[in-house]
């Protein structure tokens, strides 16, 4: 059975993301499960994001070709949703929740203090590729407001000082993780 999904004719400049990389096999599986239909776009982008950590332009082109979705539509969808990122993530990621409860709890001052400490805003990565700062619309952990996620680990009732303390641990390379 051919593992690679049929790319359409418009996908001439296809990258060689085919059968070797296990991750592409998983992405192809997602597309095939939805019959390679255009409406599988978001599901497929989720799959790429999950397995690669970000969406690069080659990946977007590949998905557009395989699902027969216009390139601009793929890019529009990828930039509309906060979950998708077009740049590779840093070594560590810090997600600050900006949901209503966290916002009232002082999420913006946490973001400001991170900006002052490491000089990156939401959606940016430090130049040394160490830390990425992201925001979330709501983590669903409003009882823990303001909540942040450090490398997938959720921490509640954060203060600027506590967040900076965690970030300094990363920058000093003594997380031991």
């Amino acid at each position: 059975m051919d593992i690679k999904s049929e790319p359409s004719s418009r996908s001439s400049g296809e990258p060689a993301q085919t059968t070797e990389d296990r991750r592409w096999r998983l992405v192809n599986r997602t597309m095939r499960m939805h019959g390679n239909e255009p409406h599988a776009l978001i599901e497929t982008l989720h799959s790429v994001q999950e397995h690669f950590g970000f969406l690069d332009l080659d990946a977007l082109k590949y998905v557009a070709g395989a699902l027969r979705v216009p390139l601009s539509r793929v890019y529009a969808v990828a930039t509309f949703y906060h979950y998708f990122t077009l740049k590779p993530p840093g070594e560590h990621t810090c997600v600050v929740c900006k949901g209503t409860a966290c916002y009232i709890g002082g999420a913006s001052s946490i973001l400001d203090s991170i900006q002052q400490e490491v000089g990156i805003g939401p959606g940016e990565t430090t130049s040394d590729g160490q830390i990425s700062l992201l925001t979330a619309r709501c983590l669903g952990s409003c009882g823990l407001a303001p909540a942040t996620v450090f490398d997938g680990q959720i921490c509640g009732r954060m203060t600027s000082a506590a967040v900076l303390e965690r970030i300094r641990r990363w920058t000093n390379h003594d997380t031991g993780d």
Binding site: K61, V74, Y75, A76, T79
Partner: peptide, 14 residues
């Protein structure tokens, strides 16, 4: 592309 105040019309992959 994008949303809200950062929206912009794009051609192909921006």
């Amino acid at each position: 592309m994008g949303r809200g105040i950062t929206s912009r019309v794009i051609t192909d992959l921006n």
